[in-house]
Write a protein that binds this DNA or RNA. Structure first.
Lengths: 257, 257
DNA sequence: ATATTCCTTGCAAAATATTCCAAAATCTTC
DNA sequence: GAAGATTTTGGAATATTTTGCAAGGAATAT
């Protein structure tokens, strides 16, 4: 069997089962585990597959920044790190707009001690503090966009255009020197309304978003005040962003206790 | 079993039961308690789960855990029965306003096959269909009222006053011949807006609400078109309501499967 | 206050991954 | 075609991660 064919079969098989062990795969394509490992390493590089201890799993192409799958181990450590660093930027008692998306979600998680007023269109964020009375949380109206758990539509836009907040904590699908972009056109309008409603705009993006352009252009860099990312962000782009006048914060992993 | 699969199963199991002990979980996934602990620590980091002494619980439960659960558990069967009967009254494709509260929640649960458009200010209801694309869900804006998971405040009222729906499925704290009453004053204004927005108003109340008056008066009976309750409702009051011109439906328990 | 249960930490064993090497297969070049 | 170079493959040795267990300490119950 040709290597290419073998890799295709591995991918096809994972397409069916979502997850498979090494043994399973090596039997499926009739090759040694060493070979399958190499194939998986290659496929992982291509981005469609994710290796884990004991096997490999399909990385759902839809599972981008805005998809809240429970099984979202995508850059989890980085996002949590960014979440902590992002929360540092919020002063106690401020009103904070939290965007949909997993990275802003992690900021929200670390916000409890600041006793902020949170305004959001993200159901996961809303649920986060639905039972904790420390945090006041305002939910925008809107139609639920199925897989994302985000409220969208005119009602959502309208909600934000009537509000004012101290900070907006935003997420996105990509950032370049040309600006911010994200993968869901529906969200652009809402994100713009959020940014208009806030005095300070913080974008939280893990390093994989750097240099990437998603489908829809959101805004240029002039609307962005602070960018929080992790240490693995490409140094050249970070430097260029700083030269452009943006404050870029590289979040350091939590110190070992 | 692979770590990822195990973690998924833990999460799936918690989806079902909302809370589980270490022993329970370790038996469920057939791993040592140490391993389950580690998995839980990881899942907690991901934010979907909260560890407690003796086990773990879901952070954003898919049901009405935070509503009135302690009081509710022994009337669960009745409410489910009422929920089924209430759902019968909805025609396919209608737009339905769902009130906050556990009984309307149970109606919502039985509504999937009708492919309705749901409009609600209840987070539990919103979460119910957040990932199912069969049902379109519109969420009103508002401030989260902590333990109830309801959106309240001017934003919520305003949302409903701008909408029109076929039916409103309502809950309440009590019903007498004088009308409907509710224990949370904050909700009254919103309930009135909901009722104004709908052509048909259905109240779903278990038998314990009959003859009871709660703190705040909501409305007289003239605004109520249908009342759904369970078979244990006091016969005299039911009769009086019917004499008053209300349609009262006594929901019969579901036949054993 | 005592007892029990539960959580954390450190450790050794098992499972899995990585690296290295030789054999087989494939591709170059003549 | 054949000899040699290059790549690919399978296996073995070595690292790393994960798992289960046990001891000590914290939280909860009696």
């Amino acid at each position: 069997m040709q290597p290419e064919e073998r890799q295709q079969r591995i991918e096809a098989y994972l397409q069916r089962v979502e997850f498979a062990s090494l043994e399973e795969l090596s039997k499926e394509v009739d090759a040694s585990q060493s070979t399958v490992r190499r194939d998986l390493a290659f496929l992982e590089g291509a981005g469609n597959i994710r290796r884990t201890h004991g096997g490999a799993r399909l990385v759902n192409p839809r599972s981008d920044e805005f998809t809240f799958s429970a099984r979202d181990t995508h850059q989890l450590a980085e996002k949590e790190t960014i979440g902590r660093a992002g929360a540092e930027l919020i002063r106690p008692g401020e009103s904070v707009i939290i965007d949909a998306g997993t990275t802003p979600f992690h900021v929200a998680r670390n916000l409890e001690s600041k006793k902020p007023q949170i305004i959001t269109n993200s159901l996961p964020v809303a649920n986060l503090y639905a039972s904790a009375s420390m945090v006041e949380i305002v939910v925008s109206g809107g139609v639920i966009y199925p897989r994302l758990g985000v409220l969208v539509g005119p009602l959502a836009v309208e909600s934000f255009s009537k509000m004012h907040a101290d900070v907006a904590v935003m997420g996105a699908g990509g950032i370049t020197l040309e600006g911010i972009s994200n993968s869901h056109g529906l969200l652009v309008e809402i994100q713009l309304a959020m940014m208009r409603a806030a005095r300070r705009v913080i974008f939280c993006l893990d390093h994989t978003k750097f240099g990437r352009k998603s489908l829809s252009h959101v805004c240029g860099l002039e609307n962005v005040h602070v960018i929080v990312t992790d240490a693995a962000a490409p140094a050249d782009l970070v430097q260029a962003l700083r030269a452009n006048g943006r404050e870029v914060i590289l979040a350091a992993p939590a110190p070992a206790p």
